[in-house]
Structures are given as structure tokens and as C-alpha cells.
């Protein structure tokens, strides 16, 4: 990949649509389903992933020439686990409510396939700038998808978006949307919609 502006722009945009980690590559499904009952935790999760992804891509990209093949995955996990712990401590210190709500799903970012996949596929082969742009694009794509999914679910489950009521007064909340079944079915329909658009594009 070249370091020119158009190429960087292409890398950035790939994460948003063509290679959107959730909708196209089906990576990182676990947090996608678990934290999208409301927009606020989804956004927190998305931002934490952006932070961890960017930091781990930077570190991996810097040490890409020093990596020994058989110790590669171990180094990746070590790097990721460190930054996830930092993100977790940060949330506990400054956003205690969100930290309580997300619970074990923050440490589970360690095994989020997106991060290890980007470290392997992009950062261990490319320079610093490309790696950072790739991380931001992928992270943003992930965050946007999470927010869309959470928006739909929060709207139908409580009649609110971002804890602000938007639907009319007599709206009967669909409790099921806030439960696991709502997560699976909303994501299924969202994926079907994206597939339909992609098929039309081709």
C-alpha cells in the first residue's frame, strides 16, 4: 500500500463499508450482540475498541521487523491485553457507570477477532501511517455499526434514543428487543439488508 493521500483515503473508507468488520467480515460478533441494548454502552464500547485497535496497530507496526514468526501471536495478545487493561482502568476511574454496565465485555475486547485480525493482516505488514489510518477506519466502521444496531434496539425496546424519549406517549415498549433474542434478530435483518444492497451494487 502506498503512502499517498488517495490510497490512505481508500484504506480509511474500506473499513466503513467494503470491509466493514461486522457487516462484511463477520468479525467481533460477541460485543456487537452483547452491548447493543442501548446507544450509550455501544458508543463506549466502540470508542474503547478504537483506542485499543489504534494503540495495538501502532505498537505492532513499530516492531514488525523484529517479530519472530512463532512468537508473533503471543506478542499480539500481550500488546492487546495491556491496552485493554488500560482502557478498562480508564472506564472504571472516569465512567464508573458504563464500566458496571459493560462488565466483562470490556476485557473481552482482548479476544475480539477484529483487533488480532488487523494486527496480523495490516499492521504487521505496513508502515505506521497506513496502520493508524486502517485502525481508525476499521474502528469507526465498527462503532457506527454498533450505534445503528443499538439505536434500533433502544428505540423499540424503550421508545428512547440516547436516553431521550422520541416516540409518542402511548408507545408500548417491545421488551424482547432489549433481550438476547432482539440482538440476534435485529443483526440478522441488518445483515440481510446490507447483503441486498451489496447484491444490487454488483
Amino acid at each position: 500500500m502506498a503512502n499517498t493521500a488517495p490510497a490512505l483515503k481508500k484504506t480509511f473508507l474500506a473499513g466503513l463499508w467494503d470491509e466493514n468488520p461486522v457487516l462484511r467480515l463477520l468479525l467481533g460478533m460477541c460485543p456487537t450482540l452483547a452491548v447493543t441494548a442501548a446507544v450509550k454502552p455501544a458508543l463506549t464500547m466502540g470508542l474503547s475498541v478504537i483506542f485499543v485497535l489504534t494503540c495495538s496497530n501502532i505498537v505492532v507496526s513499530l516492531m514488525r521487523h523484529l517479530l519472530k514468526p512463532h512468537l508473533r501471536i503471543l506478542m499480539f495478545t500481550l500488546t492487546i491485553a495491556t491496552f485493554v487493561t488500560i482502557a478498562d482502568l480508564f472506564l472504571k476511574a472516569f465512567q464508573p457507570e458504563m464500566s458496571d454496565q459493560l462488565g466483562p465485555y470490556i476485557p473481552l475486547i482482548i479476544v475480539n477477532c477484529i483487533i488480532i485480525c488487523r494486527a496480523e493482516a495490516c499492521a504487521s505488514k505496513n508502515g505506521l501511517v497506513v496502520s493508524i489510518v486502517d485502525a481508525l477506519g476499521m474502528g469507526l466502521g465498527f462503532t457506527l455499526t454498533l450505534c445503528v444496531l443499538a439505536g434500533v434496539r433502544e428505540l423499540l425496546a424503550t421508545g428512547k434514543v440516547f436516553e431521550i424519549p422520541v416516540l409518542w406517549d402511548g408507545f408500548l415498549p417491545w421488551a424482547a428487543m432489549g433481550m438476547p433474542v432482539g440482538a440476534f434478530i435485529t443483526l440478522g435483518l441488518l445483515l440481510a439488508g446490507v447483503n441486498a444492497i451489496a447484491q444490487k451494487e454488483n
Partner: peptide
Amino acid sequence: SWLLLVSSIFFGGLLALTNAAWQPRIQQN
């Protein structure tokens, strides 16, 4: 394994620093 050892020490230090900086706040919360 020198890279693994060096980075372990580096990451360990980083975590210790963050922890020292934010732990009082977490307990306060």
C-alpha cells in the same frame, strides 16, 4: 525471545503506572 522479555517489562511498567495513577480514583468511585 528478547523482544518478548523487553516488551513484557515495558508493558508491565506501563500497567503499573496507569494503575498507580487511577486506582485511588476507582476506589473513591
